[in-house]
Amino acid sequence: MTHSNPPDTAMPVRAATFPDGPDSMLLNPDIEESQWRGERVRAGLRPRIVLTGLAGAALAALAAASGGGFAAVFALSAGILAVCASVVAGWYSAARMLTDHRHAPGRFCRLDRVRGEFFFRSRDFADLGTASYAVRTLIAGVDELHRSPARAWIDPGVPREVHRVVWQAVCCLDRTRAARGLAGELATDPDSTVGELAAAAREAVTVIDDALDEIVRHVHGCLVLTRAWEAKLRHDELATRTDHVLATVPGRAELLRLTEAAEALPQTVFAYITAARDITGAGAFPWEQPASSWSRLLCILPRGLRRGTASGRALARRVRSGEGLS
Rank of each mutant, 00 (worst) to 15 (best):
A310K: 15
H3K: 06
V165K: 00
R113K: 14
A198F: 02
A211N: 12
H101M: 08
L111K: 01
E185L: 07
P266G: 10
A55V: 09
P6Y: 01
G53C: 09
M25W: 00
L128S: 07
A150H: 00
T2K: 08
V170F: 03
A247N: 12
E185K: 13
V41G: 00
R180V: 00
A275H: 05
P156T: 06
E323A: 15
H163F: 03
G79N: 10
S24H: 05
V219L: 01
E203S: 10
E117V: 09
D209Y: 06
A198P: 03
F119G: 04
R296K: 11
Q168I: 08
P47K: 07
G184R: 13
Q267W: 10
R303E: 15
D20T: 08
R123F: 08
A310G: 15
C109S: 15
F18V: 03
A264F: 07
E196D: 12
P19I: 05
G322N: 12
A140G: 10
A231K: 04
A95P: 06
R175P: 05
E185F: 07
V114D: 11
L225P: 01
T17G: 00
G324R: 15
R241S: 05
H235E: 15
S4L: 15
A178G: 04
D236H: 10
T240F: 10
R40G: 01
V245Q: 07
E196R: 05
P29N: 03
A58T: 12
A316K: 02
W36P: 04
T240M: 12
L59P: 01
L26G: 00
M25H: 01
D213A: 14
L138D: 05
V142Y: 07
A271R: 13
P29L: 02
D213Q: 12
I279T: 14
D155L: 01
R37A: 13
E161I: 05
V158I: 12
A63I: 06
G56K: 07
R107H: 14
W36K: 04
T2P: 03
F108E: 14
F70L: 15
